[in-house]
Computed example of a mutant assay.
Amino acid sequence: MSHQSLLDVDDLTVSIDRATVLEDVSIRVEAGETVALIGRNGAGKTTTFRSVMGQTSIRNGSIRVNGTDLTDRPSRERIRHGVGFAPEDRRLFTTLSVEDNLRMSTWGKADTDEDGFRERRDRVLEIYPEMEAFLDRPAGQLSGGQQKMVTVGRALTSDPDIVLLDEPFEGLAPSVREQFRDGVTRIKDLGISIVVAESNVRHAAEIADRAYVIERGEIVTEIGRDEPITENEEIERIFEGG
């Protein structure tokens, strides 16, 4: 019997407009670890995440969380089974307050009352204390870095076991990036598993325990805990050799 991880993605194949954009992508994530999915823009990182969340139809493969097959389940079922998603494009409700954006991930969940929401919100504020200052502001009035914090916070208020962060550091100023990285560290300290999609190798290396490298929709190598990510041959070929 094969080992059961927190997240098991096996032989994921996705076609869009008859073009294969992912082919036989397999990823595993254990409880409490941070895994990077590294690739250049257009390599298939976002499609992988959207597939895991049930937002993209897959042609072949399976997705399991804690041993439960979620391959054919809708997105809300992935969330109920402990998967949070912070997309690169944020998808915030710009006219709603930050607090109501956080609340969105708990609406319709029978196990979360107002007290339960506040407890989860307060945990998010422990991760990103800067957010407390703009909880009442409409999300559309925030800076890009602040909106990214809210996007991650919304994923966390669903009380996930694992959270998918799509290009979390993209476009951030160095000072904001440092704040954001500190928040990711605090997420790790809570025991929440993280999968981070990154096109910047150095950013990935700063937070990940290990990594998968994706190119043209295929996993070309897996980098273990005992190998520096920045020194991997495939990383050097793709990002330095072109």
Results as ranks from 00 to 15, higher is better:
Arg123Phe: 11
Ile235Asp: 09
Phe85Asn: 06
Phe93Asn: 06
Pro129Met: 01
Ser62Trp: 06
Leu102Trp: 13
Leu172Thr: 06
Ile27Phe: 00
Thr95Lys: 15
Arg90Tyr: 04
Glu231Phe: 08
Asp100Ser: 10
Gly191Asp: 03
Glu240Asp: 12
Asp89Thr: 15
Gly61Phe: 14
Glu178Ile: 05
Arg181Pro: 02
Gly67Ser: 00
Ile16Phe: 07
Glu198Trp: 00
Pro138Trp: 05
Gln141Trp: 13
Asn60His: 15
Glu88Tyr: 05
Leu96Lys: 05
Gly140Ile: 10
Ser26Met: 08
Arg73Cys: 10
Ala211Phe: 12
Arg28Lys: 13
Ile162Leu: 15
Leu6Phe: 04
Phe93Glu: 12
Gly153Cys: 09
Met131Gly: 00
Arg210Lys: 10
Gly82Thr: 08
Ile27Gln: 05
Ala197Lys: 00
Ala211Gly: 14
Thr112Ile: 14
Gly42Tyr: 06
Ser15Ile: 07
Gly108Asp: 10
Phe93Thr: 09
Gly171Leu: 09
Arg73Leu: 11
Asp10Glu: 15
Asp24Val: 11
Glu206Val: 06
Gln146Arg: 03
Arg177Ala: 15
Ala205Arg: 01
Thr48Ile: 11
Asp182Arg: 15
Ala31Phe: 09
Leu190Phe: 07
Val195Thr: 09
Glu88Asp: 13
Met53Thr: 01
Asn66Pro: 12
Arg118Tyr: 12
Arg210Tyr: 06
Ser158Tyr: 11
Thr34Tyr: 08
Ala197Cys: 03
Arg216Gln: 12
Leu70Phe: 03
Lys188Tyr: 06
Arg123Tyr: 08
Gly217Ile: 03
Val201Gln: 02
Asp159Ile: 11
Thr48Val: 10
Val176His: 12
Lys148Cys: 00
Ile223Met: 05
Ser75Met: 15
Gly39Lys: 10
Pro228Glu: 13
Ser5Met: 15
Thr46Glu: 01
Phe239Ser: 10
Leu125Val: 15
